[in-house]
Design a protein around this nucleic acid. Structure first.
Lengths: 142, 142
DNA sequence: TTGCGTGCAAAGGTTTTGCATGGCA
DNA sequence: TGCCATGCAAAACCTTTGCACGCAA
């Protein structure tokens, strides 16, 4: 692996972005959500800076980037430790909500696919599309 | 499953898009590649039309959409066979192979997500990303 | 002082939308 | 004839780039 380790000056902005990501735990956010957060807080950070900070944090392994496409744009998520790798996501096709799913069934899926189908699933990239409970309720009431 | 079947007039453009997708077998293409194809052929189709046709074909299950993200934009791929509605798909991130998975575990996943997480999965749209057996072998031999 | 970090503005892409026209059924 | 389909242009987005200035080390 030949890549140049990014420089990492400590600035107000870089600190704030990392702190904010960490404060979210394992919840994921988009760039525009991050930007809005700092605007609301009264300490706006330029979008360009956010993009560049996130890029650095990704290459440092501090956060993870998901390209779920579908409108909203990329999502970023803080990496707390090693345990955070084992997650799948559900995305509602109606409301766009991205649901973070932690469930032991998923270990079973992973094990099964590998054992029976020789397929090693990438939990980071895999997203289950469908309809969330809230939107299903709404539809039933129509 | 309650969704409104899209209308499907037979027009020159709609026919050409479907025929072209089918002619590619399981290779995937982007919208701009499709557009270029028809321009080169001397029978250009408006980009808007291509987008709208692809959207219909996706909802009919005739083609599949991948949001690889990473610049290029979404990829589309023809789905051969009607039986594809009944199962899930695995896509190898290394070789791009699309694997059709027929396995009772999937019913279980579907049931579990609905019962425990109130989430109704859409099998047409959901793709499991990961690494296929062949590519895993290759990697192990390196 | 040095050179990275910042952020505005503008550019680059992809995808969506408005609207008048064309064409299938 | 009644709609849907088409496609141009423009808009809406997300993301990247250019460049001058700010600021950490």
């Amino acid at each position: 692996m030949t890549y140049t380790r990014p420089t990492n000056y400590k600035t107000r902005q870089s600190q704030h972005v990392l702190d904010y990501m960490a404060s979210l735990g394992d919840r994921h956010v988009t760039v525009s959500q991050i930007a809005r957060h700092f605007i609301d807080k009264g300490a706006a950070i330029g979008q360009t800076t956010i993009y560049r900070q996130l890029e650095k944090l990704v290459s440092l392994g501090r956060i993870r980037k998901y390209t779920h496409g579908e409108g909203g744009g990329a999502c970023y998520q803080y990496v707390a430790g090693i345990a955070c790798v084992e997650h799948f996501h559900l995305k509602c096709e109606d409301c766009g909500e991205l649901i973070h799913l932690d469930c032991e069934l998923l270990d079973e899926i992973e094990r099964h696919l590998l054992a029976e189908h020789e397929f090693q699933i990438n939990a980071l990239k895999t997203v289950f599309y469908g309809k969330c409970g809230i939107c299903r309720q709404k539809e039933l009431n129509t």
